[in-house]
Computed example of a mutant assay.
Amino acid sequence: MAGLRAKQKADKTRRILDAAATLFRREGYDSARIEAIAEMAEVSVGTLYNYYQNKGDILVATVAMEVTEVLEGGARIVANPPLDVAEALRTLIAQYYDHSLVYLSKEMWRAAMAISIQQPETPLSRRYTDLDGQLSAQVVRLVETLQARGVVHAGVDARAIGEVFFNNLNMMFIEFCKVDAMPLGELKARVEAQHAPIARLISTVKIV
């Protein structure tokens, strides 16, 4: 019975998040109504409020769903990365960026970022920060894996370099979200160009 309740809860949660993502995209985060989300998800408004206190909760939960899937895909890459620093970074970052607009629009990302900055002590903001921390840790693990396989110099501080890579890709993603007209391909190209010199410096394999 407990297993059935858990399955029903997971199903309702997913329906709510899918409905919210659809309406946030269609109507805009500010304009979308809780009642409309509940109706599309085929749950009562009361049930929705049992799961989430407000739209901000729903938005951050959608971010969490997105990041969870990204981390799962990233884990497979980190477990068996290309044995070239630049290519490994490009592959992992492409996994992040390609998935970033599956559930969320740029406008939704901006709203989530604003919540995390404007309300830094709230559970919503702490959750957002924790998700960033998990992504950063995964980039660090990529550098550590490459180092363990002899592709990155042994003397390199894998944690520091991994955090540098993440901080840059994250800041560039923020800039991408600010500009509705910027295509994903441009974001990838700019980040790859910025990471390439560092990748060459830390790599044990010198490309002529």
Score class of each variant (00 low, 15 high):
Lys9Thr: 05
Thr13Gln: 12
Thr13Val: 08
Asp18Ala: 08
Thr22His: 15
Arg25Val: 03
Arg26Pro: 08
Gly28His: 08
Gly28Ala: 06
Tyr29Cys: 09
Tyr29Ser: 02
Ala32Tyr: 04
Ala32Asp: 10
Arg33Thr: 06
Ile34Asp: 04
Glu35Asp: 14
Ala36Lys: 13
Met40Arg: 15
Glu42Asn: 14
Gly46Thr: 11
Leu48Asn: 09
Tyr49Trp: 14
Tyr49Leu: 13
Tyr51Phe: 15
Asp57Ala: 12
Ile58Asp: 05
Ala61Ser: 14
Val63Glu: 03
Ala64Val: 03
Met65Asn: 03
Glu66Lys: 01
Thr68Lys: 07
Glu72Phe: 00
Ala75Lys: 10
Ile77Ser: 01
Asn80Pro: 00
Pro81Glu: 10
Leu83Glu: 14
Asp84Tyr: 09
Glu87His: 07
Glu87Thr: 14
Thr91Cys: 08
Leu92Gln: 08
Ile93Trp: 15
Tyr96Met: 04
Tyr97Cys: 01
Asp98Cys: 07
Leu101Glu: 13
Leu101Arg: 12
Tyr103Phe: 15
Tyr103Lys: 14
Leu104Asp: 10
Leu104Met: 15
Ser105Gly: 14
Lys106Arg: 14
Met108Pro: 06
Trp109Val: 06
Trp109Tyr: 13
Ala111Cys: 08
Ala112Ile: 08
Met113Trp: 02
Ile115Trp: 03
Ile117Pro: 00
Gln118Ile: 02
Pro120Asp: 07
Pro123Arg: 09
Arg127Ser: 08
Tyr128Trp: 03
Tyr128Asn: 01
Thr129Gly: 01
